[in-house]
């Protein structure tokens, strides 16, 4: 279920179209020798994943939407009772949720930094550098590490007393390095650094693959026309890899706004230092984390309000992705 979390592809429409033709292309010249049998087996085989989607995505969402207009005790569906739009009122007036969206935007900074790092690294590695392959392999390692292990790692690094980072900063002459665990301004940036450390591995691979796909003959033509390296990058390379960059940017926005694991684990690991449930003054409360807290807290509305908030988050994410898509017309080119 959650394994598909990162497999979300924003431009699914176009992809579907491209793929649909790929799927039909392999169809042999029509000979209906297997007739109905092939018809039945084909349909059954093909719809198995959709049955799973129906049972474990459509049905739960349907139930969640129905309960948005109701109230109930905990998860006990038998205590369900109609209460109109009260949950919506609660959700819209939930200041913590709207603030958590800003935290989510802060988290997208990590992914954007990761994207920039991936472009630079992939550009360097595409120059056929000796040992480049080894670097690619190493740079990808953080991507396969669990957020649990990575959080433990970075909590050690940021630890205010006796931690590596602050000792280093003090060594460099910073007299009072930030108290990462207790200071509400610094707390979210600690999450950003942690996420940004993990993020580039995937981007490097994708950008490298995109760069390798650029048609060599276009460079030849550009060289013939006397284009400088600089010009070649902006007129050939950048447009050619722009669809991949757009994909990565959309994924970054999506993952940033959906941050949960690292925020939740950091909050737990630093809970001895502060009183908030998500860092000092809830500075690390991302939207999904807030939804999780709401779900587990009947006083805040429990499951029904959590469902409304999930719906709101879904709408916000869709809007952000739609704006991103609209803006992409300014810089993404699909001509290559």
């Amino acid at each position: 279920m959650s394994r598909d979390k990162t497999a979300v592809i924003p431009s699914a429409g176009e992809r579907a179209q491209a793929e649909r033709s790929a799927a039909t292309r392999s169809r042999p010249p029509k000979k209906r020798r297997y007739g109905w049998k092939e018809e039945v087996y084909g349909t059954v085989f093909a719809s198995l994943p959709l049955v799973g989607f129906l049972l474990f995505s459509v049905v739960p969402v349907g139930i969640a939407i129905a309960t948005m207009f109701c109230d109930m005790d905990g998860m006990n569906i038998s205590t369900i009772r109609w209460n109109g739009f009260a949950n919506f009122g609660k959700a819209f007036s939930d200041v913590a949720f709207w603030r958590s969206l800003l935290v989510g935007l802060e988290m997208t900074v990590a992914h954007i930094v990761g994207l920039i790092v991936s472009i630079v690294v992939a550009a360097i590695l595409s120059q056929k550098i000796k040992g480049g392959k080894l670097f690619t392999i190493f740079f990808f390692i953080p991507y396969v590490c669990s957020s649990a292990a990575i959080s433990i790692m970075w909590v050690q690094i940021f630890k205010p007393a006796g931690g590596v980072l602050n000792s280093l900063l003090q060594g460099l002459g910073v007299e009072t390095p930030p108290d990462w665990f207790r200071d509400a301004t610094w707390f979210p940036w600690m999450l950003v650094v942690t996420i940004a450390w993990k993020a580039p591995g995937y981007g490097i691979l994708m950008v490298q693959a995109a760069l390798a796909n650029v048609n060599e003959s276009i460079y030849e033509a550009a060289k013939m026309d006397g284009a400088s390296k600089f010009r070649q990058f902006f007129s050939v390379t950048f447009p050619a890899i722009s669809p991949t960059l757009f994909f990565l940017l959309a994924m970054g926005l999506l993952n940033g706004l959906q941050t949960f694991d690292i925020a939740q684990i950091f909050a737990q690991k630093t809970s001895g230092y502060v009183t908030g449930s998500a860092g000092p003054g809830d500075a690390g409360l991302t939207s999904v984390f807030h939804i999780y807290n709401t779900m587990n807290n009947p006083g805040a509305g429990g499951m029904p309000v959590a469902s409304v908030l999930s719906l709101l988050l879904f709408v916000v994410i869709s809007l952000v992705l739609a704006v991103n898509k609209r803006l992409s017309k300014l810089w993404v080119s699909y001509d290559y």
């Binding site: 979390k5 739960p60 959906q258 999904v288």
Partner: peptide
């Protein structure tokens, strides 16, 4: 977006 579906499920 899968994470958004987790809680309602």
């Amino acid at each position: 977006p899968g994470t958004v579906l987790m809680m309602p499920s």
